[in-house]
Simulated assay, not measured.
Amino acid sequence: MVQIKALYYRYQHQIGFSIILIIVGISLLIWWQVSQSSDGVSSKDFTTIAAHQKNAKKSEKIKKTINNEKSANIVIDVKGAVHRPGVYYFDKQPIVAEVLSRAGGTLSSVDSVRINLAATLTNGQVLYVPMGNEQVPDTYPLPGQSPQNMQDNLQDNRSNQSSNDKINLNTADSAALQKLPGIGEKRAQDIIKQRETMGGFKVVTDLQEVNGIGAKTFAKLKPLVTV
């Protein structure tokens, strides 16, 4: 016993230091294990939370879209020369300008003069946007126009275009008149002289009053001139 006490007093400092090292080592080991466990749980929880948030946002977006479609009273089908053809939903009756805006606008080839942007569309209506002078299908008339009105307008436009291509006997100069078949410089001058004498041609048939223009020549000129 005396020997043990002697050894203890002799090595008490070394023993105390060793015990402290053991305690510190055990404490560090426990702390490291707890820290690793905590980090793993946190990372896993963070990933899980992020996934839940992403799914929640996606579900909310889908739910919002479904609710908007259910609450929409007006459905419009957009076809033809627009950037994004498709079906669009509206809470109230839209005008053509609003629908075209939702569809990304019209293509550059569209003649905007033909489209009434202020016309109101109804539920289930098809808005067909034609390209250039394309004839609109009878089943999809432009808003604000009936198929007959569109046909009449198209014919009027063609008639006006055809009329504009004709040579006006009352305003054409000698060079323009010489573009007509069978009309040379002398005959052109005769036409100008005759219209000055008559105070202007009243009808196309007055052209027959010009010397040298008979029935056969007039028949060739009639579809090419106007007054």
Rank of each mutant, 00 (worst) to 15 (best):
R10D: 13
K57V: 15
K63R: 15
K70L: 14
G124E: 02
V203P: 00
T47C: 00
F46A: 15
Y9G: 02
S159W: 12
N168E: 10
K61C: 08
K166Y: 08
Q161R: 07
N168S: 13
M150G: 03
A215H: 02
K186M: 08
G144N: 03
G80R: 00
L224D: 09
Q145N: 04
T65Y: 08
Q161K: 10
I115W: 00
D156A: 01
G144A: 00
K70W: 07
Q178P: 12
S18I: 14
N160I: 13
N164S: 15
G25Y: 03
S101D: 03
R195C: 03
K70A: 14
V110T: 03
Q33S: 08
A81Y: 02
P94H: 11
G144R: 03
N170W: 12
S159M: 07
S109T: 09
D138K: 08
N67I: 13
Y8F: 11
Y11F: 15
A172Y: 03
V24M: 12
A172S: 10
A56V: 11
F90L: 11
S101E: 04
V24H: 00
F46N: 10
I22G: 04
V34H: 14
Y140E: 03
M198F: 10
V203R: 09
K186H: 06
T139G: 05
S35M: 03
N67M: 13
